[in-house]
Amino acid sequence: MSLTVPVILGSVRSDRQGIRAARFLVAELEARGHAAPLVDPAELKLPLLDRMYKEYPSGEAPEPLECLAAIYRRADAFVVVSAEYNHSIPPALSNTLDHFLEEYFWRPSAICCYSAGQYGGVRAAMQLRAMLAELGAPSIPSLLPIPRIQKALSEAGEPAEDWLRKAAGKFLDELTWYAEALRAKRATGTPY
């Protein structure tokens, strides 16, 4: 069953490494037959949050928000790729996520976190779990942490280490299960 799973990248830094993980996950999702549009805050150039998408009069939101809303409305799940900045999530990721709310409802999320060091960004992932649940897109139990990302993935997103493709397979199997289950339930209605 084909799904739409936006991959939301969290960094806008000029030397960001997360683009490697995002490219890898987009390719892995597409290999499964899923649509996996990349949501890149560096390309979107969203302003700092002043008004949420829903607070604009219909048809008057800035073009990047209108495009993103259309992608999110089609989504069955979300993959969020996050670095760890000061034991927390990057500000660009928070800003990208905070522009929306209802578009996330009743859709699962999955967290891929990374770092240049050995911990793979897991401290940021714990904070991101709480945020995604509050947005209405609770994260699946599994994480995909990628330590030493600069060695684990090439610039093009090709894994240099065998464990990564295997771990990603299990991670995406779990997300697919939740996405299919929640899509079936959304089709019969939601609590509100």
Rank of each mutant, 00 (worst) to 15 (best):
P108E: 04
I111E: 01
Y119P: 00
Y114A: 12
A116N: 10
V122W: 02
G117W: 07
G121A: 05
A110M: 13
E102K: 14
G117L: 12
L135W: 01
P108L: 03
A124I: 06
E134L: 06
P108R: 02
R129C: 07
L132S: 05
F105S: 07
A124Q: 05
E102N: 14
Y119V: 07
R129S: 06
F105P: 00
M131V: 15
Y119K: 04
A110T: 11
Y119C: 01
A116V: 13
S109G: 06
A133E: 10
F105T: 03
M126L: 15
R107L: 08
A116E: 11
V122C: 11
L135V: 03
S109A: 14
F105H: 14
S109I: 05
L135M: 10
G117Y: 08
L132T: 09
G120A: 11
W106D: 14
E103S: 15
Y119R: 10
Q118H: 07
A110S: 14
A124W: 01
Q118P: 13
R107S: 08
E103W: 10
L135Y: 03
A124P: 01
A130W: 07
A116D: 11
R123I: 12
G120V: 02
R129E: 04
R129P: 02
M131H: 10
Y119Q: 03
Y114K: 03
Q118V: 12
A125E: 04
L132V: 09
A124F: 03
F105M: 09
Y104L: 13
A133N: 13
L135K: 01
W106R: 12
A133M: 07
W106Q: 10
A116T: 15
E103M: 13
A125D: 05
E134R: 14
M126E: 15
L132I: 12
V122Y: 03
E102M: 12
A125S: 11
R123V: 12
R129G: 02
A130L: 14
S115E: 04
V122P: 01
A124H: 05
G120H: 05
C113Q: 05
E102Y: 15
G121W: 01
R107V: 09
R123T: 09
A125F: 06
I111W: 01
Q127W: 08
A110N: 10
Q118W: 08
L128A: 11
E102S: 13
E102C: 09
Y114V: 07
A125V: 08
A110H: 06
W106L: 13
G120R: 03
A130I: 10
M126N: 09
C113S: 15
I111S: 01
W106P: 00
R129K: 12
A124S: 15
R123E: 08
G120K: 03
R123Y: 03
V122E: 11
Y104D: 08
F105G: 03
S115W: 00
A110F: 07
A116K: 14
G120E: 04
A110P: 07
G117F: 11
G121M: 01
L128T: 08
Y104E: 11
A124L: 08
